[in-house]
Design a protein around this nucleic acid. Structure first.
Lengths: 130, 130
DNA sequence: CTGTATCCTAATAGATACTG
DNA sequence: CAGTATCTATTAGGATACAG
């Protein structure tokens, strides 16, 4: 079942969210985890080309503490840890799609689009008045 | 007329956008300008409580250079300058609404909602499965 | 009024080495 | 493998004074 309502919400609701998403690797990390379903630290580390382990570790902690990502640790040798999006994280990933569509229409996107990592692609519905 | 298409877009389209929107005052500035239609530097300065003039100046330059905001200067004494959203800026403001709706459902929003500046309120459609 | 210039502090993130 | 610790460079942003 689905409930809808019109509410007044303050922009400052986005303060904490933008603190997080404004971080250089946050969106790539969320997207990469979502694409994989479940993924290990080392795979994120190699897929997010040029991130440092300390930065990835920091981002994962923040995503986990905000309930966007869950972490499951397995008692094996060598150790194995799997990260996945929570339901809340899946909803966040949906919520950024309109912004992604907007960004893809900006001039600066065309210039860099060819150099993009194919694993970081997302399908969006682009609509444009004209 | 309206054209729709499904396209693959890279997350890195958001790189520059998040660089901008992740800045502490960017969204408040966009929203305040949008609420006013047209607004002067000093009015933004007082409405965005606790921003510094150098920071506001910097944000306005960035918004202008990205085609989100337009600046019109009048040859009067005392000087007058009016800022407004471009069409592109209006679309950006729409595009962040789903993210705002998501953010408003997070635990940390309830805690601070009472202290919000009423001039920074936005109407959003909240939907929630249950 | 509309900003800019300067100074200063805090936060971000990269590289690298190292631990459990 | 999955991180943490340390060090460093760059950037963000606040306060204040001042210029056009």
């Amino acid at each position: 079942m689905n409930e809808q309502s019109n509410e007044e919400v303050c922009m400052c609701a986005l303060d904490g969210t933008m603190d997080l998403l404004g971080k250089k690797w946050a969106l790539f990390t969320i997207n990469a985890i979502g694409n994989h379903g479940s993924v290990r630290f080392k795979d994120l580390y190699s897929e997010l080309h040029r991130i440092s382990p300390s930065t990835l570790s920091s981002i994962l902690h923040q995503l986990e503490s905000r309930g966007v990502v869950s972490r499951e640790s397995f008692a094996e040798i060598p150790p194995r840890v799997e990260y996945r999006l929570t339901q809340n994280g899946i909803e966040l990933r949906q919520a950024i799609l309109p912004l992604l569509a907007w960004a893809s229409r900006q001039d600066d996107y065309a210039r860099q689009a060819e150099k993009c990592d194919p694993r970081q692609y997302v399908k969006v519905t682009l609509s444009r008045d004209r």
